[in-house]
Design a protein around this nucleic acid. Structure first.
Lengths: 299, 299
DNA sequence: TTCAATGAAATAGAAAAGCTATATCATGGC
DNA sequence: GCCATGATATAGCTTTTCTATTTCATTGAA
């Protein structure tokens, strides 16, 4: 299965087609004309066809040659472009991925500071909730919401997972929610990723798991949408205090029972592959992010 | 301007990323693992970045490596595909280009015969009126309507250019066209490429160039459209008898003055570059086409 | 017409690249 | 604890690739 043509010959071929001359191509490639001729011949032998017709003092591409050039030209250009780009940036860039809710509610407000402190860094932020695979996706470092157990990863806890109850102020007043057990009359917004209502109600309202299911619930598969729904008076959401900071400050949400915050066995972890040397800027970013998280955790 | 990465290294790199192992890549490439390692290192040195992190007993791609792989992968695949295709067909294919009118009116009816006689041949027919450049377009041979003078080309006259007058039978009867000079009352369909009305009328109707311009004319830039217009009773067209064969046979057109056919200094020529060895199938095609033309010319 | 200049082919030998073989090493499974 | 594994490192060998030269047929200028 010798699927590849002699790749180095393609360089000589491309230049020869473009310049219509082995000599000029040789000049461009800083070799002798003979070398180009030999490369072309090798390619012709491999392909089993003539790419140029040789007449005296000049070569001219055959139809086959032109056809082949048209097919491989773009590919070669792509290789050159990709190599240039990769060679250029890289050291100055950091690729990070995090859950959408974390990106929207926590990271977005702090990102600008990083870029100001490290102006030469180019930051590529991806947001997705499914776990990325460092062996398949071009990502340097990630924030992941999980239990922190993964042998292949270096993990640092940013924030322990917590579940606190939030709703719109008007919703609280309208429903007359004053103590945890009042929630049996409310609508529970149940975010799949933070589905801790049974535990929360069990711990703070003395509601059994069976009774929980009798309460009106809305399932929402995106954390930020669940919070958004709470803001719009659709019910009460269990969320990590991290994610509601801003909405609380703006008065859109109220924290219903500040004393009743459930600690859950999940957390926001900063993760990167074990044994992978972090490039300079990635390390900077990591340290910065840890410091930012520390600051808030000390509140 | 060393724009190209070491191309051969890309093979080893691609396989290593795909298989996540230098050893497996080496196996696939039929070399020793050491060779792969050296190739990868060479590429890393050229790019100035780590593509894999080496831990004991295993390598793992870095984010940069995955990114680079994603960029060059498609390009490599394109090169392989193009090479396979080109290698495969080629000898059995013929690429020919001809004017649209010739393709539609003359060639299309004969093409099938060629494919039946030479069933293994794959024929790529292009039709365009502008002159193709054998040094830029992947074309083996062409039919060109011109004066036959081009030092860089081998030319064989297929048909001398002729200008004969045609119109729909109904149009002839309705306009009462009986002799050439009656055409001063008709509408002349003037095809840019065969604009011989002044010469024709001068030779056969004794009409001066100045008087020709007083006759109603419609300019049409495509020969087959001019003929089509004549079929639909829009006027009288000057065309090469070659192109009207079928329409005459079907009674859609009539040849107005069979004795008055102007020979013009153009013609349909079969052309291919001088000094370009014609591949087997192209030669066959050329001979077949010449024979077909001969047959008709002897009528 | 002659004659130098041109651009490619052919070939031998030098240089470079690439591969193998081997030794070494750290780890994970038995 | 020991062996198998899959990487690295290095030296030396093989193959590839390039250069240097000669040869050749033609073009274009004198």
């Amino acid at each position: 299965m010798a699927a590849y043509p002699p790749l180095n010959s393609l360089r000589a071929f491309e230049a020869s087609i473009r310049l219509n001359s082995f000599s000029l191509a040789a000049e461009e490639l800083n070799v002798t004309p003979g070398a180009v001729g030999q490369q072309i011949k090798k390619l012709e032998d491999w392909l089993g066809m003539e790419l140029f017709t040789r007449s005296v003092r000049q070569v001219r591409p055959t139809a086959d040659g032109l056809d082949y050039a048209a097919r491989i030209g773009p590919a070669l250009r792509q290789i050159v472009d990709a190599s240039q780009q990769v060679r250029g940036r890289s050291d100055r860039s950091v690729r990070v991925v995090m859950p959408p809710s974390f990106a929207a509610k926590w990271f977005s407000r702090r990102m600008a500071r990083f870029l100001i402190d490290y102006p030469t860094t180019s930051l590529h932020v991806g947001s997705q909730s499914q776990m990325i695979d460092f062996n398949r996706d071009p990502v340097d470092i990630a924030v992941r919401y999980f239990d922190g157990c993964d042998d292949s990863l270096e993990t640092v806890l940013l924030y322990r997972g917590r579940a606190a109850a939030y709703c719109a102020p008007s919703y609280r007043d309208h429903m007359g929610v004053a103590k945890p057990s009042d929630l049996v009359r409310a609508t529970l917004l149940n975010d799949i990723l933070h589905a801790w209502w049974p535990e929360w109600l069990g711990a703070y309202a003395g509601v059994s798991a069976a009774d929980v299911s009798t309460i009106t619930q809305i399932e929402i598969d995106q954390t930020s949408m669940a919070i958004e729904a709470a803001i719009h008076g659709q019910g009460v959401v269990l969320a990590n205090p991290l994610l509601t900071e801003e909405d609380i400050a703006e008065g859109k949400l109220v924290h219903l029972f500040p004393e009743q915050v459930l600690t859950v066995p999940f957390g926001y972890y900063l993760v990167h592959p074990k044994n992978r040397a972090l490039r300079g800027q990635v390390k900077l970013f990591r340290d910065w992010l840890l410091a930012e998280a520390q600051e808030l955790a000390s509140d």
